[in-house]
């Protein structure tokens, strides 16, 4: 059924973002963008979440945290890298403590660049993530899980 598409709950993790992208993610919850009208909820709990939204690049200390959050999410789950930092490391790429984008640690399904990523892009990114989520659900059912 199409429930998965209508109720995407996200968990947001700030890798080592400059906070620019984080503010934009939060802006999506405000009356202007109001992502709740699409059923999107910003949960703080990986066990309730369907979409893992990461902003900022991966640094040494964050690796384990990102892995941990990802592992705790029940299937089907999708990872969305929001902002150029999360996609590739962005302007922090050359820093001695930065490993690069989120895909250095966990598989990323949706890349949304931008510095910072705009709320419209975020909503668009989540809609794209929903497509992937549906695919994964279909695959899960095929495998009989």
């Amino acid at each position: 059924m199409a429930y998965m598409k209508r109720s995407p709950w996200i968990i947001h993790y700030d890798g080592s973002s400059c906070n620019g992208c984080d503010i934009e993610v939060l802006a999506c919850l405000t009356p202007l963008y109001d992502v709740e009208r699409f059923g999107i909820i910003n949960t703080g709990n990986p066990k309730h979440a369907d979409i893992f939204v990461v902003t900022g690049s991966v640094n040494e200390q964050g690796r384990q945290v990102i892995r941990n959050i990802y592992d705790q999410m029940p299937e089907p789950k999708v990872v969305a890298a929001f902002g150029i930092c999360a996609c590739s490391g962005g302007i922090f790429r050359e820093c001695y403590n930065v490993d690069g984008g989120i895909d250095q640690v966990i598989p990323v399904d949706v890349y949304i660049p931008g510095c910072p990523v705009r709320p419209e892009q975020i909503i668009d990114g989540i809609v794209r993530a929903l497509g992937v989520l549906e695919e994964k659900l279909a695959k899960m059912k095929e495998d009989g899980r």
Partner: peptide, 8 residues
């Protein structure tokens, strides 16, 4: 409905 579709 979605919650019931998720992995146990």
């Amino acid at each position: 409905g979605k919650l019931f579709e998720k992995e146990r």
